[in-house]
Computed example of a mutant assay.
Amino acid sequence: MRSIRTEWLSKIDYGEAWDLQKKLVREIDREELGETLLLLEHPPTYTIGSDRHPEHLLYGAEELAKRGIALYEIDRGGDITYHGPGQLVGYPLLYLDAIGLDLHGYLRTLEEAIIRLLAEFGIEGGRKPEYTGVWVGDRKIAAIGVKFNKARTRRGFVTSHGFALNVKRGVEQEGFQGIIPCGITEYGVTSIESLTGLTLDVETIGRRIVPHFLDAFDSERVDESVIAARSLRS
């Protein structure tokens, strides 16, 4: 059974989290650090993946500045999406062995962990065959975009980037109105609070997804105290 360290980083700027991921990917590749799941929130941010379609960003530079939304072109797969307050972001940094490697299986396992979490709240999450992510009917509740970093010291890949789960009511309007999310025009987005009427804390949802994540990946948890946020960022 693999062991995965988990860490709640609270709210962190996207650029800082991206740099942190790259640092930890190198350390995991060199076997200086164990596999890690980072859980956090971002301030308002749009990210554009490798499947770039600038026309899916509806705001110009002036409007982005007015609204205080950062913009990053990044190295994950997929198109444009939104990260912001009220959304749980998870970055699994996991080693995938090249022998028997199933990249699609990795994506389906990420989706499965989120689907199991939603079931705790009586929400029936599911998949759409043509799209990555987790859906509730025709509304997307979690976006997924990942990168497979080729390992330099051994065969296989180390994953980075990950998932963004809408938790708080209102996140659907806060940032998604300025984009065509993932280039999908026919479907909308939703959140756990909008579906349940509950008032929820993002950190609490982050801690509640951990056992589902570990179970889905057949893993055990390493004590969080071993991997304090301050040591991660040094």
Rank of each mutant, 00 (worst) to 15 (best):
I141M: 01
W135C: 09
T132L: 14
R139V: 11
F148M: 05
T153M: 11
R169G: 13
G175E: 02
Y131C: 01
R155K: 15
A151T: 09
R139E: 14
R155V: 13
H161R: 08
A151L: 08
G170Y: 00
A151F: 11
R152P: 10
F157E: 07
G145R: 03
G137L: 00
G175I: 06
Y131M: 05
R152C: 12
A143H: 09
K128A: 13
G137Y: 00
A143F: 11
R155N: 15
R152H: 14
K128S: 14
I141K: 04
S160C: 08
F163D: 04
V171W: 02
R127N: 03
R127I: 01
A151V: 07
N166K: 06
V167L: 02
A142Y: 09
G156W: 01
G133S: 04
A143M: 11
V134K: 04
F157G: 07
A151H: 08
F157W: 12
G133N: 04
I144R: 05
G145L: 02
R154I: 03
N149K: 11
G170E: 06
L165S: 00
K128Y: 12
F148P: 07
F148Y: 05
V167A: 01
E174T: 15
G175T: 09
V134A: 00
G175P: 00
E130S: 08
G137E: 03
A164Y: 05
T132M: 13
I141V: 08
V171H: 07
T132K: 13
G133A: 03
D138C: 10
L165F: 08
Y131V: 05
N166Y: 01
G170S: 01
R155I: 11
V134N: 00
G137H: 01
A151C: 10
R155T: 12
Q177K: 15
P129A: 10
G145I: 00
A143K: 05
A164H: 07
G133Y: 08
R152S: 13
G162A: 03
K140Q: 07
N149S: 13
N149L: 04
L165K: 02
A164K: 11
R154C: 02
Q177V: 15
G133D: 06
V134C: 00
Y131A: 08
K147W: 13
G156E: 00
G175C: 02
L165H: 01
D138G: 11
L165G: 04
G137I: 00
G145A: 05
E130I: 07
K150W: 05
W135H: 07
S160K: 09
I144S: 01
P129N: 10
E174P: 10
P129W: 03
L165V: 13
Q177M: 15
V146E: 04
S160L: 11
V146I: 10
A151N: 09
F148I: 08
R154M: 08
K140S: 06
Q173V: 15
F163H: 06
I144H: 08
V158C: 04
Q173N: 15
G175L: 04
Q173S: 15
D138Q: 12
K147N: 14
T153G: 11
F157S: 09
F163Q: 04
N166G: 05
Q177L: 14
R152F: 15
E130P: 09
K147Q: 14
H161T: 09
A143E: 11
V136F: 05
E130T: 11
T153S: 12
